[in-house]
Each structure stands twice: as structure tokens, then as C-alpha cells.
Design a protein around this nucleic acid. Structure first.
Lengths: 185, 185
DNA sequence: GGTTGCATGTAAATGGTTACATGATTGT
DNA sequence: ACAATCATGTAACCATTTACATGCAACC
């Protein structure tokens, strides 16, 4: 599922500009499971138009730059249906945090705690953000609420695990480092 | 953190061939937070050698193709330390499941249940796999056990959320579809 | 006077996936 | 016989990120 398809899906909920779509990826309800920058959104929207899956109209604004508002076409809706009839592929996660903690013995000791604490804070912030966007867009479509709740559940579980196992890991790391030092002397 | 750095980190635990590294990504304890195919691992290992971060030795085997075993160099260890002194960037997740459920009204009704049930099964299978690999490689380094436990906690939380909210979503989707049908007639 | 927000885009570089290409052995 | 496992690699393609480029308005 590429950026083009996801943009098309966003447009199926109503016309939008590239800038607005980007905002949804950055701070809106998409934040935790999909991201894309301007550099991929603008070209994607251009392509959608060239393939007649969307149309553009220029909205002149006062005291603001002009806006290009994209609208999905019937052909675009057809393309969307096709894409949403396939089974989703497995989630792809790339977690530097996990790589670093997996090889925790390579991380400078004073950093391990910082890294974990930073992540706990980030998860809590994420839960908060997803909660406020819940308050803002009620009543949202069922799927949207489901996915938001899913995100909250996962970030809460992350924060909980990290909080509960943080000290255990740090102690084990300290101990094994002490053992190595003893062996070397 | 690119494939090169992660390969180097794997090599810091002991010499390995490209094939063996790939196995760890595919089925081993890495499975849930990092993936890379042969097409990125082999070139990465080549580059590591060219930059003197690793060395290769050819191990002839009987009844098996020859193996190229890579070993990290002191220079490689230095490079690794540097990479692991930085803060990890945010996890990057791309979830087609979430995209599809977010726009659940675009998913053919009979598919929504299949998609969710499939994911529940996949999460449970993942928990099982992480559990067995726990039994196999005890005692593993502390970081490795921490990250494995983290994975188990998250996949369990995923499965739980999906199980608990599955029927609610499907009912809401059915109801809102019925409302649309009534409005159209 | 500097930063943030609104608004659009292009080009180069990076990084990764997929498909191709080969070949012996082991298990069903 | 056929598929899977072991084992390596290249090349083409694809997608995405990053950096560059522009400019006005509002706020601090």
C-alpha cells in the first residue's frame, strides 16, 4: 500500500489539499501507523491526477498562499475498492530502540536509562494526543475510533512494559558489566 | 540505523555468514522489530569489508555450498560504539491493517472479520514463536531478553484489543451500512 | 528580528525490495 | 518428482527521505 493509495483513501472522506493530508499524517489520527512527507505526497497527488483518479481545483485565498484542493473521481473510488479488497500485508516495523536495547551491552551505560525514559515519555505523550484527538472528532467513523483505541492500547502497553522492566534491565546490565570487569582484572 | 549497522551489531556477538544473519531477521529474535532481505544483507556485508569494518573467511563445507563467514574488526567495533551512542530515532511503523480498518467502510463487509481474525492468529503465533525462542536461547544477554519480553507484551496486547473490540466494530459497521442503505431508498 | 505556520513543489540521494541466476542435498 | 533448505550474489526497479527553493503573514 503506497502513499498514492493512502492519499486516495483520505480523499474518499472529502476533498483536501496536500498540506492538509500531510497534517493528518503528522499530528492527526494517522500519526501512529503511517507517515509520509511532502516529498512523497505532492508527487503522489500529481500522479493521481494524471491517472484520472483525482482532480484538482485551485482555491485562491486572501493572506494565504493559494491552495490546490484534490477531489477523488469515480475511477479513483473504483481503484480504492480494488486496493481495499486485498488482504493487508504484515505490519512493517523498524525499531531502532529495540535494536539498541537488544544489543544493550553496546550502549553507553548512562544512555540506557535515558533512552528508556525518553521512550516512556513519548508513549505517554502519544496516548495523550490520541486521547485529545478522540475528544475533538467525536463522532468519528467506527473504523477510525477502533484504530485510535488500538493505538492507545498499544502505547499504554509499551509504556507499562518499559516502566515495569526498566530497573531490572539496568541492574542486569550493571551486574554483567561488573562481572566482565572482574574477569579482566 | 541502516542494514550495515545492524549487521555489524550482529557480528559483534560472533562471526556469521549472510545467510545466518538473514535467518535471525526472518525467524529469530529480531523478527518483530527489524527485517532485511538477502538483497540488502549481501551488499551490506560487502561494503563492511571494503570499509575494513569486517573481514571475510571462506569456509568450505562438504555437501553444502561454501560459506563466507564475516568477522567484525576493531575498526568495526569503534564504528558500532559511535552508532550506539546516538539516541534512537522514533520507531517507524507502516501498518496496512490500520489503514484498512481506519477506512473500514471501504473494506468489503465479509473481509473485515477475516482481516481481524487473521491478525489475531498472527499475533498469537508470534507470541508463541517468541516464547519458544526464549526457551531455546536461555541464558540470553539481558537486552535480548528484555526486547523479547517487550515483543511478547505488545503482541499479547494487540491480540487482546482485537479480540475485545472485534464484534463491536463489526456491529457498528453493519449498522452504519444499514443506515446508508435506508437513506438511499 | 526571528520563528512558526501556511502553502507548493523539485531534484538528488538513499535505501530497500523483487526478480533473476545458479546449484547441490535432503526430505515427502 | 517436487519442494524446501542451504548458500551466494547482481541488477533493475521502486519508494521514500532529505535538501533545496520560494514567499507572505502572524506572533513573540
Amino acid at each position: 500500500m503506497d502513499v498514492k493509495t493512502v492519499c486516495l483513501a483520505v480523499l474518499s472522506r472529502g476533498p483536501a489539499s496536500g498540506y492538509e493530508i500531510r497534517k493528518q499524517f503528522e499530528t492527526g489520527p494517522f500519526r501512529h501507523f503511517y507517515d509520509a512527507g511532502f516529498g512523497s505526497i505532492y508527487p503522489a497527488l500529481g500522479q493521481l491526477c494524471r491517472e484520472d483518479l483525482a482532480t484538482v481545483t485551485l482555491h485562491a485565498q486572501e493572506k494565504r498562499p493559494d491552495k490546490k484542493v484534490y477531489t477523488i473521481t469515480p475511477l479513483g473510488r473504483g481503484r480504492l475498492s480494488a486496493a481495499f479488497s486485498a488482504l493487508p500485508r504484515e505490519d512493517r516495523l523498524r525499531s531502532e530502540l529495540c535494536v539498541m536495547l537488544f544489543f544493550a551491552e553496546l550502549v553507553p551505560p548512562e544512555n540506557a536509562a535515558r533512552i528508556i525514559d525518553g521512550r516512556i515519555a513519548a508513549c505517554e505523550e502519544m496516548v495523550r494526543q490520541l486521547g485529545t484527538c478522540a475528544a475533538a472528532d467525536e463522532p468519528a467513523p467506527p473504523g477510525q475510533r477502533f484504530v485510535r483505541g488500538f493505538g492507545i492500547a498499544l502505547f499504554e502497553a509499551s509504556a507499562r512494559y518499559l516502566r515495569e522492566h526498566r530497573d531490572g534491565l539496568l541492574n542486569e546490565l550493571r551486574d554483567s558489566r561488573a562481572a566482565v570487569t572482574r574477569a579482566a582484572s
